[in-house]
Computed example of a mutant assay.
Amino acid sequence: MEAFKYSLDKSSKKYVCPNCNKKTFVLYIDTETGNYLTTDFGRCDREQNCNYHKAPPKGKRAFLIDFITLKSISDKAYKLTDVNGIISIVPKSQILEQSKNNCWITEWFLKTSIINYLSSESKYFNTGSAVILNEVINNISLSERTCNKEPSFHSLELLDKMYFDNPQIDNLTEFLITKFSKDEVFNAKQNYFITGTNHFWNNATVFWQINNKEQIQGAKIMLYDRYTGKRTKEPYNHINWLHKAINDPNFTLRQSLFGLHRINEDYQKTIAIVESEKTAIVMSIFLPEFIWLASGSKGNFKFELLEPIKKRNVIAFPDKGEYKNWLDKATELNAFGFKIAVSDLIEQTDFENGFDLADYYFENNF
Rank of each mutant, 00 (worst) to 15 (best):
L223H: 02
F175S: 08
S141F: 11
I271G: 05
N187Q: 15
Y6P: 03
P308D: 02
P91W: 03
F355K: 02
Q217L: 13
P151G: 06
A130I: 07
C20N: 00
D40F: 11
N101Q: 11
V206Q: 07
I105K: 05
V185Y: 04
E304Q: 12
Y15C: 08
T252W: 01
T39K: 14
C103D: 10
S99R: 11
F251T: 04
S7V: 11
I137Q: 10
L118Y: 14
Y124T: 12
E2D: 13
L96I: 06
C103E: 07
I221D: 01
R231G: 01
T232N: 14
N264W: 09
F290V: 07
I315F: 05
V136G: 05
E157K: 14
L305T: 08
C20Q: 05
D9Q: 00
F153G: 03
A62G: 11
N102W: 07
L253A: 09
F286D: 06
K311N: 13
Q94D: 10
S72A: 15
N203H: 09
T331S: 13
M222G: 04
H199A: 14
K60V: 05
C147K: 15
T178G: 10
A130E: 12
W108G: 03
N21F: 14
F4L: 14
I114W: 10
S295V: 09
F67E: 05
G196E: 05
K179L: 05
T69I: 04
I95P: 07
E352L: 13
A55I: 03
E47A: 15
V26R: 11
K269Y: 09
I340Y: 03
G59R: 00
T146C: 03
A341T: 13
N19F: 06
R312S: 10
F164A: 09
C17S: 00
D165P: 02
D165C: 12
I169Q: 08
T279P: 06
T69M: 09
Q255A: 02
K76D: 13
F301L: 09
K22C: 05
Y236P: 02
L305E: 06
R43G: 02
K58R: 13
T178R: 11
F251G: 06
S256V: 10
K310D: 01
P151F: 04
Y227R: 13
D350Q: 11
Q215T: 01
G337I: 01
L293C: 03
N240S: 11
G128H: 08
S99T: 13
I105L: 06
K161M: 11
V136K: 12
Q268P: 04
F164R: 11
K123D: 00
A3Y: 15
E234T: 15
F366K: 12
T205F: 04
